[in-house]
Design a protein around this nucleic acid. Structure first.
Lengths: 133, 133
DNA sequence: CGTAAACCTTCCCATGATGGCAAGGTCAAG
DNA sequence: CTTGACCTTGCCATCATGGGAAGGTTTACG
């Protein structure tokens, strides 16, 4: 199967498939006489795995670990769970940060007239420069 | 004031100050005879503004708009509020995405034994490849 | 059979925001 | 006068992705 077909079947673009190969996330695909990469069902499976993991926000490095575990039948599920939980913690702290930003902004926006007048608590706050840090 | 002092006083690194100048976010700082950039209190003010806005998650492009409005006394607060609200919407949708990721992962992790056994719902789910999209 | 479209290949460049490092000039204190 | 702390520019790296050029291949159609 050509790279385009593999892309269509896995939801990962050809560009990204080559990229993942280049950075060592995927083993180099076998080439045909015309130098085209050739993919089989098992590769599609790995690509789908990667696509799904990316959509869940795992970094390439994390996916590398997960892939290694996935390829290794018999690995302890402990490892997998550890990685997933670390990632959840990561997501949670980033969410908390963004919540804090959004809350601050909501407060400022609520206090801003939003009309023709020039005075605006949003700019006033920014002008303070976040001294209290 | 040298760039290092300006950095210390504004919380923006010298590297970033030069960068902001290079991309046109800041007007080029005046140079002294020795070609050192020279900053005054007003520049510190702008740098603090930028730092605060970055910490609230505004992109450089958004900060450019906000800075222009800030420099323009007499601008209508409507514009500022519009930008802030657009950014809040942005934050909210990114938060929602990350919440969805975290929820999915929490469910998977809860169902994973996390012991020596190899079976693991997390990998099983990833292996499905997120077909339903 | 010929040609055009749709593939494939590699390579380089761009994004956005930041950091690091190197080579060279300058200034201040000892 | 030397040392160390500053400043300058410039290039490279990150992370994941996309765009595009230049060139070869295959497929499909008239």
């Amino acid at each position: 199967m050509n790279i385009g077909a593999a892309a269509g079947r896995s939801g990962v673009t050809p560009k990204m498939i080559r990229h993942y190969e280049a950075i060592g996330l995927l083993r180099p695909a076998p080439r045909r006489d015309n130098a085209y990469r050739d993919y089989g069902p098992r590769d599609i499976h790995e690509l789908r795995f990667i696509g799904r993991a990316r959509r869940l926000g795992f970094s390439i490095a994390e996916i590398g670990e997960l892939l290694a575990l996935w390829r290794d039948r018999g690995r302890p599920s402990r490892e997998v769970k550890r990685i997933a939980e670390a990632h959840i913690g990561d997501l949670e702290s980033r969410i908390a940060e963004m919540e804090a930003m959004a809350n601050t902004l909501r407060g400022l926006a609520a206090a801003c007239h939003g009309d023709d007048r020039p005075d605006c608590p949003i700019l006033d706050d920014l002008a303070l420069g976040g001294v209290h840090e």
